[in-house]
Amino acid sequence: MTEQGKLTRALIGFSAVVIAVCAVVVTVKVVGTHPQRPLLDQEAVERQASAAVRAGKMSRDNVFCPTAIEARKGNKFECDVYVAPGESETVKAEVVDDQGGISMSKL
């Protein structure tokens, strides 16, 4: 009986360790999985901001927009477009659909 008791206790202890490891693995999977929204193309956003200020000229030079802008309808942001040294104009932008369409207007 003593041998059988030791074996039973060892199996119970081993089972507890296996259950604890499984719980940790499941927790890490659940916490680590979160849907990530697509981001806007940084270059395209800066070219569009340039065009809004510079009469259609789509150069990214001296255009500063936030990075990692989510393509989420209603998301608003601003870009600064430098037209001359020390002289900038601000462009107000809004994401108009979840596919990344944006609307821009000069302030």
Rank of each mutant, 00 (worst) to 15 (best):
S103W: 08
R9A: 12
A68H: 11
K73N: 08
C79A: 09
A10E: 13
G56F: 02
L7S: 11
T27G: 08
V91R: 03
V95N: 04
Q4H: 12
G100N: 09
V17N: 01
T8L: 07
R72G: 01
Y82L: 05
Q99G: 14
R54V: 06
V45T: 13
A51D: 03
E46H: 05
A10H: 08
A23T: 15
G56W: 02
R60D: 00
G32Y: 07
A20L: 12
K73P: 10
R47I: 11
C65S: 12
N62W: 01
T33E: 02
A93G: 06
F64T: 11
R47H: 09
P66F: 01
A51G: 15
F77S: 04
H34A: 10
V17D: 00
V17Q: 02
R54P: 06
G13M: 05
Q4I: 14
A49W: 02
V91C: 04
D80T: 15
P35L: 00
V45R: 03
M58I: 06
S105K: 15
G101Q: 13
K76Y: 08
Q48W: 04
S15N: 13
A84D: 13
Q4A: 14
T27R: 04
K29L: 11
R54G: 02
A84V: 08
V63L: 00
V91K: 02
A52I: 14
A44R: 14
K6P: 07
M58C: 01
N75A: 07
G101I: 07
Q42G: 11
R54N: 11
I12W: 01
S50Y: 06
T33P: 01
P85V: 08
T67A: 02
C65W: 05
D97G: 11
K106R: 15
G5E: 11
T33K: 07
V63E: 00
V63K: 00
S88I: 03
M58R: 12
L40A: 08
K106W: 04
S105F: 03
V53N: 01
V24K: 01
A23L: 10
M1W: 04
A20E: 05
K57L: 07
K29F: 12
T33C: 03
D97E: 05
A51I: 11
M104N: 07
M58A: 13
K6C: 11
Q99N: 12
Q48C: 05
Q99I: 12
K6D: 13
L40G: 09
A16C: 12
K92N: 10
S59Y: 00
Q4E: 12
E70F: 07
T90V: 15
S59D: 05
Q4K: 14
V21W: 04
A71L: 04
Y82I: 14
G5N: 13
R60C: 04
R60A: 01
K73C: 07
E94Y: 01
R47Y: 06
P85L: 00
Q36I: 10
Q42L: 10
Q36P: 06
K92R: 13
